[in-house]
Computed example of a mutant assay.
Amino acid sequence: MGGLVIVGVDGSASSLAAVEAAAREARLRTAALKVVHAFLWPAMHVPLGPSPLGPPEGGMQNMVDRLVAEAVERARAAAPEVEVSHAVVTGEPLTVLEAQSRAADLVVVGSRGMGGFVGLMVGSTAVHLAAHARCPVLVVREEAPVDGPVVVGVDGSPAGDKAVEFAFQEAELHGSTLIALHAWTTWNAPLPAPQDPTEPYANPAEALGQEEKRLLSEALAGHRERHPDVAVEHETVHGPTREALIEASRTARLVVVGARGRGGFSGLLLGSVSQALLHHAHCPVAVVRGTAARH
């Protein structure tokens, strides 16, 4: 496939897990890997060198050099055949990684950074980056599973179509089964027209269920043709989307969602389902925006 995978690092255990996941993704895609650290302190005119009273290996610049070197070493150990480069860019993480995403096929970050609050399941950088990046964003937890199916949330919207394609690609790359999950309730499902106008909606729930199964099949049709080797399981759930996907994440290697889905508010960059998955999923989560990726 080629291309470029970016991984953001800050020295945390979460970001080192992200490095290993990013290296594996780059290997499968035959892509290059770039390790990026956003170095905020130079912009704030803070002294970067070692203190005159401290050891020569001290200071912020030396600390950053060490954490980037450790990340690069971790990446090369995980995927020796991958070309690995690195960059230390002045700026805050969201701005730096959003800019880096313009030239990337995938950005990988850890779920929590060095400044993460205890009990906060996912850091603000991961959430905001998922909303603003120009390519898919993979958010990795410290103990990411390496087997299990890829699960994709399918809502049938044009914006969600890119997430479905990304999920098919990931399943193909990893040799995994793809579970296409579509959850619906009577509140978010369009009511189908009655087959017999003289007997409207004798069983509305059953009619809705059949309509939602048809929607799922139609949403997958073109992707199945492009990826004939991917084994796909259809799963239609009568219930809330967030709960269904979080439950499915317990046995998944990856959950893929769109940034916004059916019923999303105009201007809302990251929908409630995406945010819920980032905070509560039991496996890595990929968020794929439905708009054109690169400008």
Score class of each variant (00 low, 15 high):
Val140Ala: 08
Ala180Trp: 03
Gly175His: 09
Val230Asn: 07
Gly116Cys: 12
Val68Leu: 10
Glu206Phe: 10
Leu48Tyr: 08
Asn188Ile: 02
His86Asn: 07
Ala87Phe: 03
Ser51Leu: 13
Val255Thr: 07
Val140Trp: 06
Glu233Arg: 15
Leu208Pro: 03
Gly49Trp: 04
Thr90Tyr: 06
Val146Asn: 14
Ala13Pro: 02
Ala18Arg: 01
Ser157Pro: 01
Ala87Asn: 00
Glu25Cys: 06
Leu269Asn: 02
Asp105Lys: 09
Ala75His: 07
Glu83Val: 08
Met60Ser: 12
Ser272Leu: 09
Arg224Phe: 03
Ser176Lys: 14
Thr95Ile: 09
Pro145Val: 02
Val109Arg: 01
Pro145His: 04
Val7Lys: 00
Lys162Thr: 06
Met121Ala: 13
His174Thr: 13
Pro284Gly: 00
Val82Ile: 10
Arg102Trp: 10
Ala133Phe: 12
Val273Ser: 14
Ala244His: 05
Gly153Tyr: 11
Pro197Thr: 01
His295Val: 12
Val256Ser: 09
Ala259Ser: 15
Val151Asn: 03
Ala26Met: 04
Ala221Arg: 12
Leu173Glu: 11
Thr291Glu: 14
Ser14Val: 13
Gly222Val: 02
Arg74Leu: 10
Gly264Arg: 05
Arg226Asp: 12
Ala281Phe: 06
Leu97Trp: 04
Glu170Val: 07
Gly116Arg: 11
Ala276Tyr: 13
Lys162Gln: 11
Met63Ile: 05
Thr198Val: 09
Ala32Phe: 03
Ala202Asn: 10
Leu40Lys: 11
Val146Thr: 15
Asp196Ala: 10
Gly110Glu: 11
Val237Ser: 02
Leu120Gly: 03
Glu206Leu: 15
Asp10Arg: 01
Ser101Gln: 03
Gln100Trp: 07
His86Ala: 13
Val84Trp: 04
Gly153Glu: 10
Pro80Tyr: 08
Val230Ser: 07
Gly175Asn: 10
Glu83Tyr: 04
Pro228Val: 03
His223Ser: 14
His128Cys: 09
Ala281Gly: 09
Pro204Met: 13
Ser272Ile: 09
Arg74Asp: 03
Glu247Trp: 04
Asp147Gly: 14
Thr241Pro: 07
His279Thr: 11
Thr95Pro: 01
Arg29Lys: 11
Ser101Tyr: 03
Val64Cys: 01
Ala244Val: 00
Ala144Asp: 07
Thr198His: 13
Gly110Phe: 13
Gly148Phe: 06
Ser266Trp: 05
Leu33Trp: 03
Leu33Met: 06
Ser101Asp: 00
Gly209Trp: 13
Leu270Ser: 02
His280Thr: 14
Gly11Met: 02
Met44Phe: 14
Gly175Gln: 07
Ala38Tyr: 02
Val140Glu: 06
Glu98Ser: 14
Gly119His: 10
Leu53Trp: 13
Gly263Glu: 05
Ala180Asp: 05
Ala31Met: 01
Val107Asp: 05
Ser249Asp: 10
Ala103His: 12
Thr291His: 15
Ser85Arg: 14
Glu212Pro: 02
Leu129Ser: 06
Pro42Gly: 05
Met114Val: 13
Pro190Ala: 15
Gly123Tyr: 06
Ala159Gly: 05
Ala248Leu: 04
Val287Tyr: 01
Gly123Phe: 08
Ala87Ile: 00
Val64Gly: 00
Ile246Ser: 08
Pro194Cys: 08
Ala219Trp: 11
Arg76Lys: 09
Thr291Gln: 15
Pro145Asn: 04
Leu67Pro: 00
Leu208Ile: 15
Val285Met: 09
Ser249Trp: 02
Gly263Tyr: 06
Pro158Lys: 01
Gly91Ile: 11
Leu216Trp: 04
Phe39Lys: 04
